[in-house]
Every structure is written in C-alpha cells, then in structure tokens.
C-alpha cells in the first residue's frame, strides 16, 4: 500500500498572492492613454510667401484670455461652434459667404464635393488649456460628423462600420482635417 502523503497547508499561498496583488495594484495604473491626436505644422520657412487663401474660405476662431470666442468676427458660443463649422465646410446652399467647394471623383465614393475651407484657430497665451481643448474638440467633432454623414450618404454605413483602409483614406481626402493654428500672440498678458 502506498504511503499517504500528508496534506500540504496551502493557506499561506493565498496570503503571498494577495501581497503580490496589492503590490501590482499600487505600482500600476490602468491605461489611460487617450486624447486628441494632432499633427503640428513644420516651422514656416522665412523666405516662403504664405499661400493666398480667399477670405471666404477661412473660418477664423479667436479665443481670448478670458476664454471668450470670436467666431468670424462675431462673439460666439462654444455650444454653437460645431454647427457653425459644419455649415461653413459643407455649405449646402452655396452661400457666397461660406467656403467654396470643388467636385472631385474618387474610385469608391464617386463624385464628392470637397470644401476648400480652412479653419483658422488663434488663441491667446492667457487662454485656459481647458477651453483650448474644448475648442479643438468641437472643431474635430465637426469634421468627424461631416465624414460620418458623407459615409452615410454614399455608402449607407456609419464610419465606424467601415474597416477598409482605402475607403477611409478616401473619406479623409474628401473631408480633410484642415485646422490651421496661427502663430501665437500675447495680448491679454500672461
């Protein structure tokens, strides 16, 4: 008859693994790496002339040191900014004050109106970062919504359902993220 092996006392293993668990809980953080991704423009060439853009194709957004908005020369509200940007870029009724468009033909989407509009954002050195992110968020949100609407119109699908990179590239080409940040100014003090 085989000898009976005495049972091992395993209760301390639980203690040890609890210790390890608390150690990892304290030294690590749940991944929170998300945010608004942007491309910075290269530094301007001092000899190059700035490109000439028609006045009607520029949508200016100014944020002052008190976090107030000046949208196209009029005091604006952040709540309406997204709607205004979308109207400016899409310009469905060909308003001469809003952006010009050109018809381009793309292999998957067919004929698309591409706006020549550029959003120009200028902030003061005293603008709060919170406000700046809000404005950036609304501008990006307007572009994303336009892209989504284009996908719905042409393909009958929302943009999150499209996985084909070629189509996504085309949509990005049709509605480019044309946000230009002007060189900063210091008007309202620090």
């Amino acid at each position: 008859m085989a000898r009976k092996i005495p049972q091992l006392n395993m209760s301390s293993t639980a203690d040890i693994s609890f210790l390890l668990l608390t150690f990892f809980l304290l030294t690590s953080s749940i991944n929170t790496d998300k945010g608004l991704s942007r491309m910075l423009p290269p530094l301007p060439d001092p000899n190059a002339k700035p490109p000439i853009i028609k006045e009607r194709n520029v949508f200016t957004v100014l944020v002052n040191t008190y976090d107030q908005l000046l949208v196209e020369g009029k005091p604006g509200d952040i709540r309406n900014l997204r709607k205004q940007v979308k109207e400016f870029i899409a310009n469905p009724y060909d308003d001469p004050n809003l952006s010009e468009g050109e018809i381009i033909t793309l292999p998957h989407l067919g004929q698309v109106r591409k706006s020549k509009g550029v959003i120009s954002l200028q902030n003061d050195r005293g603008t709060s970062y919170d406000m700046y992110i809000k404005v950036q968020n609304e501008l990006a949100g307007a572009i994303y919504e336009l892209r989504d609407e284009l996908a719905q119109e042409k393909l009958g699908r929302s943009i999150s359902q499209i996985s084909d990179q070629a189509i996504l590239d085309e949509i990005q080409k049709a509605v480019p993220m044309s946000i230009s940040e002007a060189e900063p100014k210091a008007i309202g003090g620090k």
Binding site: T32, D33, K34, G35, L36, S37, R38, M39, L40, P41, P42, L43, N123, D124, R125, G126, T127, S128, Y129, Y132, I133, Q136, N137, P184, A186, K190
Partner: peptide
C-alpha cells in the same frame, strides 16, 4: 494651465520636428 507655456512647448517640438502630438484627455 494657461496656454502660454503649452504654446512654448509646441513651438519647441516643432523646432525638433516632433510633429505628432496627442493632447491627453
């Protein structure tokens, strides 16, 4: 934080050619 210091940092990043940024939010 006010934008002044962020703008300085961004200008510095442009100088060294680190164009891809992400505003954490």
């Amino acid at each position: 934080v006010r934008m002044g210091i962020v703008t300085d940092v961004k200008q510095e990043l442009r100088k060294v050619g680190a164009y891809k940024i992400n505003y954490s939010a």
